[in-house]
Design a protein around this nucleic acid. Sequence first.
DNA 1: GAGAGCATGTAAGAGGTTACATGATTCC
DNA 2: GGAATCATGTAACCTCTTACATGCTCTC
Lengths: 178, 178
Amino acid sequence: MSLAYVILGLLQQENRSGYDLKISCFNGCINHLWTADQAQIYKTLDKLVAQDLITCTLEIQHDRPNRKVYSITELGKAELYQWLQSHQPLPVVREPLLVQLHFAAQLPDQTIIALLEQELHARSEKLRDCQAIALSPKDIMSSDRQQKMHQLLVDLVIRKEQTYIDWLKAALDSYRKN
Amino acid sequence: MSLAYVILGLLQQENRSGYDLKISCFNGCINHLWTADQAQIYKTLDKLVAQDLITCTLEIQHDRPNRKVYSITELGKAELYQWLQSHQPLPVVREPLLVQLHFAAQLPDQTIIALLEQELHARSEKLRDCQAIALSPKDIMSSDRQQKMHQLLVDLVIRKEQTYIDWLKAALDSYRKN
DNA sequence: GAGAGCATGTAAGAGGTTACATGATTCC
DNA sequence: GGAATCATGTAACCTCTTACATGCTCTC
C-alpha cells in the first residue's frame, strides 16, 4: 500500500494532522503523484499508528476543533527508507478508452472519431495543466536537488501526455481520410 | 465498472463460459487492455445475469465438469453500444516509482540511479513484449477494420513505453554526470 | 442568516487480489 | 504416482470512493 509510504514521506518532512495532509498536500503537488481522499487518509493514519510507524499527539485548540498531530517514529523512518530503495512492480493501467476502441472497431468511423476527439480534448486540457505547473514559481524553501527532481517528474508527465496526444492526432488522421 | 463492458463485448462476439473468458480472453490480447482475475469474472457474470444483460445456459458434459455458457441479451447489446459511445473520464494513474523519486530526492545519487535503472530494465522488457505482439501473425478471422484497430492500439502501447524509456535514459544521464 | 473554513470521523459499497476447495480426466 | 487441464465457485482481505454527520468560528 503505497499511500502509507506517501504519508510517511510527508510526515518525515514535517509533523501534520490528517486535515493538513488532505488540504496542504493531497490538494497540491503530491496529488499529481498519488491521489487520496480524506476518508482513506484518516484510515491509513490509524493503521500507521497501530504499526508504531507514527505517533499521535492531541493538540488542544480553543477557538477551533482540536487537532491530532502525527509524527514519524524511528521505526517509521527505517520503513520509509527501505521502501524508497525497493523496486516496485510496474503499475497496472486500465484505460476504458482502449477497451472502447477495441470493441468499437466494427462500428461506423464517426463513432470512433468522436471517441478520439473527446479524448484529445480531455488530454489537451490535462497537458495545459501540467505545463502550467512546470512554469509555476519555484518553492524557495526547497533544495536544489528537490527542485531538480520536481522538474524531472513534471517533464515525464508532460512527455506522457504529449505522446498520447500525438497518437490521438495520428489515429484521427487515419480515420478521417476514409 | 468497465469490466462488465469488457465481458459484454466478448460475449457479443461469441457465447462463452467464465472459464473461456479467463483462459481464451483475459490471458490473451484483452489482458493488455484490461486485466481481470477469475474470481472477479465469476462475480461480474452473476451481476450481469441479475441485471438481465446476459443469460446463462447450463451445458451438461459427461467426461468433464458442466459448463455455464453465457450469452448477451438485446438489453445487454443496447447497454454495450451506449457505453461504447460514451466518453469515459481519464483514468487515475498511480505510479509508485514517481512517489519514490519525489521523496528520494534528498538521498544519495546512487539510490536514485538504482531506482531508475531497475525501472529501465522492467520497462525495456515490457517494450520487447509489446513489440513481439505487434509482429505476431495476424488473426485471419478478424476483419480489416479489426486488424487496423489492433495495430493502432499496439502502436499506442509501444509509444508509451518508448516515451518512458527515453525519459528514464535522460534522467539517468543527468544523475550520472554528477 | 448563509456559507466557507477548520477538523474529525463513520458507513456503505465498488472494484480488485489471493488463496482455498472440489473432483474428474488425461498425460508423463 | 504426480502434475496439468477442465470448470466452478467461496472467503477473506485490501484499496479506494461517495456520502453523510458533527459542531464551532468567522466573514459577507
